[in-house]
Simulated scan of single mutants.
Amino acid sequence: MTEGQRTASITRIEAHAFRVPIKAPVATSFGVMRDRPAVFVRIEDSDGCFGWGEVFANWPAAGAEHRVALLERDIAGLVLGQSAADPEAFFRRLCALTRIRAVQCGEQGPFDQVIAGLDIALWDLVARRAGRPLRHMLREGAPGAVPTYASGIAIDAADALIPAARDAGFGAFKVKVGFDQGDAARLLALKERLPATTVLCADANQAWDLPAALAFVQALRGAGLGWLEEPLPVFARPEDWAALTRAADMPLAGGENIVGLAGFEAALMAGSLTVVQPDVVKWGGISGCFAVAKRALAQGRRYCPHFLGGGIGLAASGAVLAAAGGDGLLEVDVNPNPLRSAFEGPGGALGGGEWRAREAPGLGIEVLPEALGRYRTASCECR
């Protein structure tokens, strides 16, 4: 590292919450998104170098504005004046400093999410300072393109969304299930209508108990699903996961709701998850999720990062996947969302079933797109 990298400190933090009205709600088994939120965060150091990150804000419905207030009132004071040189040390320190606060209010998730966004921003800053794309800061020679799959597709909307996604170049799709007992039959009928080469996955979003999950995997036996995601809640008993693993003939996937390296280590040791899916804006940022990716791949698992947010988080997810390697796919929500699509170009490009990174330093994002200004609902600036 240069002398500047060792001595520069964080002197400014901005955070901005956005909400975009949508015509068609995005349905999951546990709830419905009636608008598209995002929180984008910018940090700047004493040399004027900066970086961008994103904070998870999909849930609860009022989460975006809360995350901005949490950053401003509880976390910024722990960040300002700290070294901007070592993102991993920064991540560990901030997790330790906020642990009691998070326990005191029972809000570990929001603290984790704000820390994840700050970690992404610091990695972007450090890579920008070095003049290198973020993926190359993680692994020299990491490829500039990674394969993608289309997601955010509720089973009842699949006949409309999948053809449009195929026209956009996607060849793999993930359909949301877990709404009612007819989902298995609808998914089988959908599979029969698609070309045989199509990769089709299903996501239950933790909807089922063990009997319901067993009924689903038995109904889909032989269908050749790419994977079945979160068929049980993350807090389900290990013996339930083991029973489902024995019964299923498709890979089981999960990780967006697992927290901490210890949590992922336990999940990997249990052996049920073939596809490991941490979310870079929900827990861990770059520091945590890249560590999970390397551990998962070393144990013969598949790393496919979860993501359903804005354009900064998508670019960060793509950078981690490119650096991790393996045969993973990048999740791309195909529902309309300006908070994602406005960053295409600066943050990377989608097309032909791939996400292609820019060769610019960091994540390649200099400023928030001007067109997003009308969707802003809250902001803070801390110095």
Score class of each variant (00 low, 15 high):
104 Q>C: 07
210 L>T: 03
130 A>M: 05
150 A>P: 11
203 D>G: 03
161 L>Y: 10
154 A>P: 04
155 I>P: 02
146 V>F: 04
183 D>P: 09
166 R>V: 01
205 N>F: 08
164 A>H: 11
110 P>S: 12
221 R>L: 10
134 L>F: 02
120 I>D: 00
188 L>P: 09
196 A>R: 10
140 E>M: 06
166 R>L: 03
149 Y>D: 06
222 G>K: 04
149 Y>N: 07
196 A>H: 13
125 L>V: 04
201 C>P: 02
107 E>T: 04
207 A>H: 06
193 R>P: 01
126 V>W: 01
193 R>V: 04
181 Q>V: 08
172 A>V: 12
195 P>I: 00
216 F>Q: 08
198 T>A: 15
135 R>K: 13
124 D>W: 11
123 W>Y: 14
156 D>W: 03
184 A>F: 02
164 A>P: 07
175 V>G: 04
202 A>F: 03
165 A>H: 02
180 D>V: 05
147 P>A: 15
143 P>W: 01
137 M>K: 03
215 A>M: 08
216 F>D: 07
140 E>K: 07
205 N>E: 10
119 D>L: 05
156 D>T: 08
107 E>H: 13
176 K>N: 11
194 L>N: 07
162 I>L: 15
164 A>M: 12
167 D>W: 05
207 A>N: 08
128 R>C: 02
125 L>M: 09
150 A>Q: 08
186 R>K: 13
201 C>W: 09
162 I>F: 14
205 N>Q: 10
166 R>W: 04
178 G>W: 04
181 Q>G: 15
219 A>D: 01
182 G>F: 00
140 E>P: 05
198 T>I: 05
110 P>K: 07
218 Q>E: 15
165 A>T: 02
178 G>Y: 05
